[in-house]
Nucleic acid binder design. Structure first.
Lengths: 139, 139
DNA sequence: TGGATTTGTAACTATTTTAGTTACAAATTG
DNA sequence: CAATTTGTAACTAAAATAGTTACAAATCCA
């Protein structure tokens, strides 16, 4: 898997920490140790999902669209990650073989169930929880 | 994610279907629509995990090491896939930032919990279940 | 109004991962 | 000893990934 989900959670946690004023992609990128464009690219996805609002211009920047306690990690996952965690065959299996013909349907069901259980955990955690755990750690 | 897990399950399901005799990597690769070397590379991992036995030589091939009903998909997953489904930051975040310094520890916990729930589903399914579902489909 | 600032996005690059392939030594059979 | 098959190294092509440069469009404020 890529780190888009992790970076997106990081972005939102930084925005949650300074929830009053809009932050520049520059500042957020500094915490992540990456390029501002990487941050702005994820802002696109997060804005489309309604998790942040961002404005261009001199006093622009990004801001949470709602309270951190109302943004679950599943919201974030769905916003930035389209794929299932399990990858099917790179090339379709042999349709002339009984197993090759039917295995993908069977695996799709199992993979979907595993993914659902994984997503349930993400749905129980919010950006506020992440921020709180970080504050607790640093005490 | 890559398709190693999917291909490994496919391999074991083919071996389960003809469980009496050892099958050549050639035959298994044909069902998957790939190269025999791809199959043999996964056999290494599966053999190390004790899921299959394979023999070289004229009448050689691969064979399940135990009954298909005693091989869970979690056994297979652990045999071929080392990584967590979630990837941490590609480059470490900024340690001088409160959030950058602590977020990985917090996310590791959450990711581990999500992975555990996902693995529980895999632990409930066996290669025999997969084979049975395929037979049911083709009826 | 006009200059300064910041987002949004396209285009490019370097690195890594992935799957597939060729080649061949080692093991096994008969 | 000839035929066969695994095990593995080495290479290739394609795709994914993260990072970078560049710049138009939007916004603010003096």
């Amino acid at each position: 898997m890529n780190s888009r989900f992790t970076i997106a959670v990081h972005i939102l946690t930084v925005l949650a920490h300074k929830h009053d004023e809009p932050l520049k992609s520059d500042v957020v990128a500094n915490s992540i140790n990456t390029n501002p464009v990487v941050v702005r690219r994820l802002w696109s996805a997060l804005a489309k999902a309604g998790l942040i609002v961002s404005r261009t211009g001199a006093t622009g920047g990004g801001k949470l669209a709602r309270e951190a306690s109302m943004i679950t990690l599943l919201d974030v996952y769905n916003a930035v990650e389209a794929r299932c965690v399990f990858a099917m065959h790179a090339n379709p299996p042999n349709k002339r073989c009984l197993i090759g013909k039917n295995i993908q349907l069977v695996l799709e069901d199992i993979f979907a169930e595993a993914q659902r259980e994984m997503e349930k955990v993400l749905a129980r955690k919010t950006i506020a929880d992440v921020a709180a755990a970080i504050m607790k750690n640093c005490r």
